[in-house]
């Protein structure tokens, strides 16, 4: 793990419980999948920190290697990569995401 940007990523995913690396911002997502991830998290009322990889090419490339995941969005929960939009949506629909959040002690609105 010699890549200098890995240090930066580690700090970011440890600084917040839920971190979403996305294209664009929650208010102005630049890609349908990133927008979808924001919708799932917002619908569940999960507090999350987002980073716009379109404004940070070094972070964007570093994340692909760090998480061995080539696309965005990428969701990290308690420092662990959960996956991209496919996995996030499948987990949400099956209730696995809610279960995962409970296990990790992350607040969300059970009504969702």
């Amino acid at each position: 793990m010699s890549n200098p940007v890995f240090e930066r990523i580690k700090q970011q995913i440890e600084a917040d419980e839920v971190v979403l690396y996305m294209k664009g911002t929650p208010v102005f997502p630049q890609c349908g999948f990133s927008a979808g991830a924001v919708q799932v998290l917002t619908h569940l009322g999960v507090k999350f920190q987002s980073y716009n990889v379109l404004e940070d090419p070094e972070l964007r490339q570093g994340l692909k290697e760090f998480g061995d995941w080539p696309t965005f969005p990428q969701l990290y929960v308690k420092g662990e990569l959960l996956g991209g939009f496919d996995i996030l949506r499948d987990m949400y629909e099956s209730g696995e995401l809610q279960q995962h959040l409970r296990e990790k002690g992350i607040a969300f609105s059970e009504a969702a």
Binding site: F33, K64, D68, W69, P70, T71, L82, G83, D86
Partner: peptide, 26 residues
């Protein structure tokens, strides 16, 4: 895990994912 399975498929695409191929639902 599902994450590992998807990573295996992405590796099979040898870095084309995200550049050559924008979206792949797996």
């Amino acid at each position: 895990t599902r994450l590992q399975q998807h990573q295996m498929v992405y590796r099979a695409l040898g870095g084309r994912m995200g550049d050559e191929l924008h979206a792949l639902a797996l």
